[in-house]
């Protein structure tokens, strides 16, 4: 990085997260580096267990340590080191300039607190003078902003009186309550009905446009990626496999895993009966294969892949790939 390059909003470098278990140490995140620039939407894709959510959680240091062991070469938000931050400052960052949306709005809302109280809580936590009335009023305002009809009435209801889509809207209201610079959305549509998914994605896009916040969108849904993201980070086995602009990634992937992911999508324009899945299974994270973690499933794998772990190489044009032979990869 040269001096002239602006400091990214969020910079993660060499992030490692380990969980000791009875079957040995699980390396959930194994040297992940990525950055998020102001205002951009970065999608983090990968299958279950690829370390996407753990990466997101460690940004706000939400993992319980111990048992989790987190270390990173750099972890900065707006140039401030999140690793060295005292708890008080860290709490000010959480829910303030960094908002988080959770996967399952059924479990991420307290069932015995009204929706209004919970949104007001997010507001209150970041006020100097804790003014309950103002916070409640703001909660109603936020509910209206996220498209909950009759917000005054709805604020007094409990989560069980809300549908899934409405709950996720309330969660989004909490995340944007304090006008964040960064929104981390951890699979925000996974727990929702397909018809509601589109609406919630619309809303996230709208919230992003309105607040100008950069967004980290964690998902395993490539359709969502294509629709929303500016840039994509593909993760596999706790590592970054490839990063690229969204169009580059779909048009010309430079990592065999990305190729596999794209090929396994159902397509409208070809006439096939069967999907084309990636053969094999993701590796056991307490005992990952040596070399490239993808080599047991990779059609291009050869001796070097088994022996040597590929670095995340800069291919120019904002693209990086963790493959020994990126030029051989083709869709």
């Amino acid at each position: 990085m040269t001096v002239h390059e602006p400091e990214p909003l969020l910079r993660i470098e060499g992030l490692h997260v380990e969980f000791p278990t009875e079957d040995g140490v699980v390396h959930a995140v194994d040297g992940v580096s990525m950055e998020v620039n102001p205002g951009e939407i970065v999608a983090v894709v990968g299958e279950s267990g690829s370390g996407k959510s753990v990466t997101a959680m460690s940004v706000l240091r939400l993992l319980r340590e111990p048992p989790a062991r987190v270390r990173a070469d750099a972890l900065t938000f707006r140039g401030q080191d999140l690793r060295a931050m005292p708890p008080r400052r860290l709490r000010a960052v959480r829910g303030g300039p960094v908002g988080m949306i959770f996967q399952d709005p059924m479990t991420a809302l307290n069932p015995v607190m009204t929706i209004g109280d919970q949104i007001a809580e997010a507001v209150l936590l970041h006020q100097e003078r804790r003014d309950r009335r103002a916070a409640q009023a703001r909660a109603v305002e936020l509910l209206e902003l996220v498209g909950v009809p009759d917000p005054g009435q709805r604020a007094r209801q409990y989560p069980h009186e809300f549908s899934g889509g409405m709950r996720q809207r309330a969660m989004i209201a909490m995340a944007i309550a304090n006008d964040p610079d960064l929104i981390i959305a951890d699979e925000p549509t996974t727990a929702l009905d397909v018809t509601i998914q589109a609406q919630v994605l619309d809303l996230i896009q709208k919230a992003q446009a309105e607040t100008g916040a950069a967004t980290v969108l964690i998902t395993h849904d490539l359709g969502v990626v294509a629709e929303l993201a500016d840039r994509v980070v593909v993760m596999y086995a706790g590592r970054v496999m490839e990063t690229a602009g969204v169009e580059d990634l779909f048009v010309r992937p430079r990592h065999p895993y990305t190729v596999g992911l794209l090929a396994s999508l159902p397509r409208m324009d070809t006439d096939t009966d069967a999907l084309d899945p990636i053969p094999g299974n993701p590796p056991n994270m307490s005992n990952p294969p040596p070399g490239c973690p993808f080599h047991p499933r990779c059609p291009l794998a050869r001796e070097r892949c088994r022996a040597e772990r590929p670095a995340l190489l800069d291919l120019g044009g904002g693209r990086r790939s963790a493959c020994h032979f990126p030029e051989e990869v083709g869709p």
Binding site: L62, G95, G96, F102, D104, A108, E121, H126, M174
Partner: peptide
């Protein structure tokens, strides 16, 4: 272990807040 406590922490709540607003009421 409930996710809503995690969500509250992600919104900036500290131990004391969690205790008085979420745990004691429950």
């Amino acid at each position: 272990e409930q996710e809503y406590l995690l969500a509250a922490r992600a919104a900036g709540a500290g131990s004391f807040w969690l205790m008085t607003r979420h745990i004691v009421p429950a």
